[in-house]
Design a protein around this nucleic acid. Structure first.
Lengths: 144, 144
DNA sequence: TATTGTTATACTCTATAACTATA
DNA sequence: TATAGTTATAGAGTATAACAATA
């Protein structure tokens, strides 16, 4: 067991290790669904914002439009998401969930809740609850 | 501005966004040094554990030995780290900082402290201080 | 001119298999 | 047999440049 030195006071390092561990539990939880964290995020955002454009969803998730193309194509190919031209703006493609997509996502949300519950058990419910907001705030940090 | 739905209660998602933002500030801070987060972590661990083997350092950082080879080679090539055979075990390579490595790392620690200070300012010092331990605990979570 | 979506492409990170030399 | 380090390689994820269609 090596000493950590100042490394256990470096938030970026700790966040990287934390994200890796949490994603590992996510993968275990979602193994039966073959859905990645990115795909779950897209489905969730489309559900919350039906009819929003690819550019809007990609921007909200900080995914480059070029990289978003393949992601959407996969979800459309699996019959979970529908792409339709926006009336009045022939550049944009509006995204909505199909019935199959909405049904699957309902199961995914349940799995995600169980996943979050496991994390809350690990940290203690109070610590878990106190963690969400400041971590979300970190996401709004802008590099100097 | 799209609605987040349950996404703002998904710790894995929030951690990913947080890590991205914090690393962005790290890159801005360390731009003049051309040192990546991984390289900083290796240097810090070697400083805290001089003479430890490649396998020990790689394992402590959860880096696969195969991927650690290039990392060490870069640091040795820049004259920051020394690799020496371990007396009594001709398989292992012991890592230590060179004088140049120790000197550079001292400057890197100062830059990292400034980087952490900026994050503490962003969150408020109390929130920042309360964050380190639970995030470190998350890193010890094991996937189901 | 600017925006939306797209293709092509390159670069980094990470993962696995297979090898060597040592133990 | 198992361990330390290495090579080669494949797969993600992410970044930029350039383009067509549209605004």
């Amino acid at each position: 067991m090596l000493r950590q030195g100042p490394l256990d006071r470096r938030l970026g390092y700790l966040l990287r290790r934390a994200q890796l561990a949490v994603f590992q539990d996510f993968f275990a939880t979602f193994a039966g669904f073959a859905v990645t964290p990115a795909q779950y995020a897209v489905l969730t955002l489309v559900e919350a914002n039906p009819g929003s454009s690819q550019a809007q969803v990609a921007d909200a998730l900080a995914i480059k439009p070029a990289n978003f193309v393949g992601l959407v194509r996969t979800l459309v190919g699996r019959g979970l998401v529908r792409r339709a031209p926006v009336p009045g703006n022939r550049r944009s493609m509006a995204l909505t969930l199909t019935d199959a997509g909405a049904e699957l996502l309902s199961a995914l949300h349940a799995a995600a809740d169980a996943h979050e519950g496991r994390i809350a058990d690990h940290l203690g419910p109070d610590v878990y609850a106190a963690l969400l907001e400041p971590v979300a705030r970190l996401g709004r940090l802008r590099g100097a």
